[in-house]
């Protein structure tokens, strides 16, 4: 969906951060384009939050350049930061102040944000009616919403959300997804989302970056990621999978991925399935059914990161 010919909204070049001996972020470079939702995926401790904190100004990179909306963060800090909005970890605000006052205070730090805009974002996240209550009375989901409202207040060019679905109810997640898609696709905001909920990513993101142990392993679209799983998996139902495996082991040894009491998963190309079934029947195995199993993002992910993903 991203138009690669236009100027990136966020450029990260060689970003590196070391804490003691541990390199949390290791020479990461990527571009984020207006109008796309970019998913940032990685196991716990992969460096997602460190990278986000680096972009948002919490942590100084040891090395590397961050350019936001054409402004280098180092030399034009305020101009660069005025184009960025987001939530890092949990949204936390001044608990004893009302949601509206929190937004007003945040608005004051930006240029030209009207009270109408505050009402608009409150409306957008569905908090208009409770805007004058103190934040401390809010549930985590409501805090997420108000955090989102704050992030969107100044119409940022880059929106960065760290695990935004945390604490949201299904309706809230749905709403969030709509808001993010609206922002990206209609308003041309470059959205970066980190999450460990892969299913979420699948529904939300246009592109995905996979990070592990501080290194950016791959950037690809959802389709590309799913195709990486070398073809499709076919589940063959048979009364004796062990025997079936023996029959197939001569020609398809490396393709058998999974075995249960009555099924056998085999990862082969669509063109090969005919031959495979023939081999089984010739070998004397009975076939009760053949079913194509969709390859999932998780499997692709596990393959790329070499396991260790936290799957809910």
């Amino acid at each position: 969906m991203a138009d690669q010919s236009i100027e990136p909204a966020l450029i990260i070049k060689d970003a590196t951060k070391t804490f003691g001996k541990k390199t949390a972020v290791d020479h990461i470079s990527f571009d984020l384009f207006p109008g796309e939702v970019f998913g940032f995926l990685g196991p716990n401790g992969a460096g997602k939050t460190t990278l986000i904190k680096m972009v948002m100004g919490f942590i100084r990179p040891d090395e590397g350049t961050i350019i936001i909306n054409g402004f280098n963060r180092k030399t034009h800090y305020e101009k660069a930061m005025s184009s960025i909005g987001g939530i890092v970890e949990n949204p936390e605000m001044y608990a004893n102040l009302s949601a509206r006052l929190n937004l007003k205070m945040y608005a004051r730090l930006h240029d030209n944000i009207s009270d109408e805009r505050i009402n608009e974002v409150l409306e957008m996240v569905g908090l208009s009616e409770r805007a004058d209550e103190a934040i401390r009375k809010f549930s985590l989901g409501m805090k997420q919403r108000i955090g989102l409202a704050q992030s969107l207040l100044h119409r940022p060019k880059v929106l960065i959300l760290d695990e935004p679905t945390n604490g949201l109810d299904p309706a809230g997640i749905h709403q969030l997804r709509d808001i993010l898609k609206h922002c990206a696709h209609e308003e041309g905001v470059a959205v970066m989302v980190s999450s460990h909920l892969l299913s979420e990513m699948q529904l939300m993101c246009d592109r995905i970056g996979i990070i592990n142990k501080g290194k950016l392993l791959q950037i690809c679209s959802i389709e590309e990621l799913m195709n990486q799983a070398n073809g499709s998996i076919y589940r063959i139902k048979t009364s004796d999978p062990v025997r079936a495996k023996k029959i197939l082991s001569e020609s398809y040894d490396h393709s058998i991925t999974h075995l249960t009491a009555d099924t056998l998963d085999i990862e082969i190309d669509e063109s090969q399935i005919n031959e495979c079934v023939r081999v089984l029947i010739n070998g004397g195995s009975d076939i009760l059914g053949v079913q194509k199993v969709e390859s999932s993002l998780e499997e692709a992910f596990l393959e790329i990161t070499g396991g260790g993903i936290d799957i809910e």
Binding site: M56, G57, F58, E78, M81, M105, Q150
Partner: peptide, 10 residues
């Protein structure tokens, strides 16, 4: 954690 909204601000 309320410092976050200060750090994120330009």
């Amino acid at each position: 954690g309320s410092i976050k909204s200060l750090i994120i601000a330009p």
